[in-house]
């Protein structure tokens, strides 16, 4: 019985800036569910379990990742999975996010 595939080895579906993802998501929001993306963007908020990019993308970190490794108002590269648009908080939501070093 195999465990679900890990984010680290999954192929990236879309790699660009966080703003570019927002632009493309707004154009067509139907193709993004569960897609693996690699994003570069500015960290605009840091929570206990995740960070926010460009005020509009919440990236929940994979469990072993530490929010202490992220600095507010700096550029970061992340790989993560899109779970969907959260209309309660009006933001795009990602989970299983891992930091990509160096920032590409």
């Amino acid at each position: 019985m195999k465990a679900p595939e890990k984010i680290e080895t999954k192929a990236v579906f879309f790699s660009s800036s966080a703003k570019d993802l927002l632009f493309n998501f707004q154009k067509n929001d139907t193709v993004w569910s569960s897609k693996i993306v690699q994003l570069k963007g500015v960290i605009t908020a840091i929570g206990s379990k995740g960070i926010t990019l460009e005020n509009q993308i919440y990236c929940q970190l994979k469990e072993e990742q530490d929010v202490a490794n992220f600095k507010l108002n700096t550029l970061v590269s992340l790989k993560g999975r899109i779970i969907g648009y959260d209309d309660v908080l009006e933001e795009l939501k990602l989970d299983q996010c891992i930091k990509i070093i160096p920032t590409l």
């Binding site: 019985m1 195999k2 465990a3 679900p4 779970i83 939501k93």
Partner: peptide, 11 residues
């Protein structure tokens, strides 16, 4: 989101 449910078994 339904797809964010994590199972121990992938299948």
């Amino acid at each position: 989101f339904m797809t964010a449910f994590q199972f121990k078994i992938g299948l």
